[in-house]
Design a protein around this nucleic acid. Sequence first.
DNA 1: AAAAGCCTGATTGTATACAATTATCCTTGG
DNA 2: CCAAGGATAATTGTATACAATCAGGCTTTT
Lengths: 226, 226
Amino acid sequence: MSEANYLLGQKVFQIIREDIIAGKYRQREELREIAIGDELQVSRTPVREALRQLELEGLVTIVPNRGAYVVGISCQDMKDMFEIRLLLEGFCAGKAAKSATSEQLEALEEVMVLTEYHIKKGHFRQLVGLDNKFHEILYEAGGSRILEHALKNYHYYLKQARRFSLLSQGRASSSVQEHRRILEAVKAQDQKKAEDAVCQHLIHTIKNIDTYGWENISGGQKNGKN
Amino acid sequence: MSEANYLLGQKVFQIIREDIIAGKYRQREELREIAIGDELQVSRTPVREALRQLELEGLVTIVPNRGAYVVGISCQDMKDMFEIRLLLEGFCAGKAAKSATSEQLEALEEVMVLTEYHIKKGHFRQLVGLDNKFHEILYEAGGSRILEHALKNYHYYLKQARRFSLLSQGRASSSVQEHRRILEAVKAQDQKKAEDAVCQHLIHTIKNIDTYGWENISGGQKNGKN
DNA sequence: AAAAGCCTGATTGTATACAATTATCCTTGG
DNA sequence: CCAAGGATAATTGTATACAATCAGGCTTTT
């Protein structure tokens, strides 16, 4: 009750978003402002703002004077996002090869060193965060604000998937090797090689998820609540 | 004052968005809720909701407890969006070649016929709307909700650019020929040819804009208000 | 005179009040 | 018995009230 109960709007947005992605609500379930507000101990105002934002993200549909309905994310949606990300991130890596600053290259190198260290030590917990960081730096290095914005958005949704994907020892170490290859291509300013390296990396990631099954990562959109 | 002054929230959002894209505000200008509310004759509530949505779109930055600041769109941003659209729309056309329904093909054909008619008659006004419609149907035909959402978003921003691009007689008729080629490839379910046709079409569109100058389509982000 | 601290005005963040709309159920007429 | 219409309750849309925060200027102290 000290400082955490201010600036609720942004927090409410994130909570509802996570809940939808996690599959807390069933498809097309109605989200009532008062009910959610009661649950989160806030008034309707922050909830309304959150719902409006979620509509823009495509996670809910708002019917005027009627209410907000959950749209949610299916397995197919996840796969589609991955395909789009594959295209855009390859493109981004190519741009990064041309425009990455020395600071960005250094930051990437630092993440790589840390990753390699934790792999050796078997510290799997740290890997998820480092993997995310590697990709996010790459997005910045592309030098396009727009592209970065789009990629970060897809990346956010696919984080859940990535977490599963890295769980296996074998995948973790091959993943880090692929990162290394990406970084070297970017450093060498070899546009085509950077693109190819990213595409290969993501294709392998997708294949890895395929073996685990996409159903496990998209919050069970089949029927059940929770 | 009958029914139009209800459901203001969505309207306010669209107005502010258009204003920002049109360059009404200067870069980093502060958007005060009360001032905008007074201007649009509404209270702070709808304005706040709009600003929160605009932040998600990347058009404003909100500093907590401080205010909303215009981010705006530069020429470079427009070019970047076009590049992204090029990638995604090519991909989408390829998917459409596989998954388009007969209704969608028919709708595309209808738009084409109308377009060719208006071209012959020299009715340039109608062309912009038809061109937009052609692309939007194509987005649906791709069969990916996610991809469609992304493309419609970029398409919205680039509409202004497109309007300029179609003004010239020569460009209009070559554009419709390119559309025809896209449609035939999709009909023939030739994935690669569809992709190529869309890419060619968009590359030509970009070149056409290049000759007119990107400065004219992105609301003068150089310095001036207005 | 300079710097630190406080006060005040302005603005945002949240909650609540009120208006408008919609859905549901009940009544009523055929 | 069924359909049409209206009253009512619930929910959203908007406006306003109040609380919290911040910037700027003023005073005070060293």
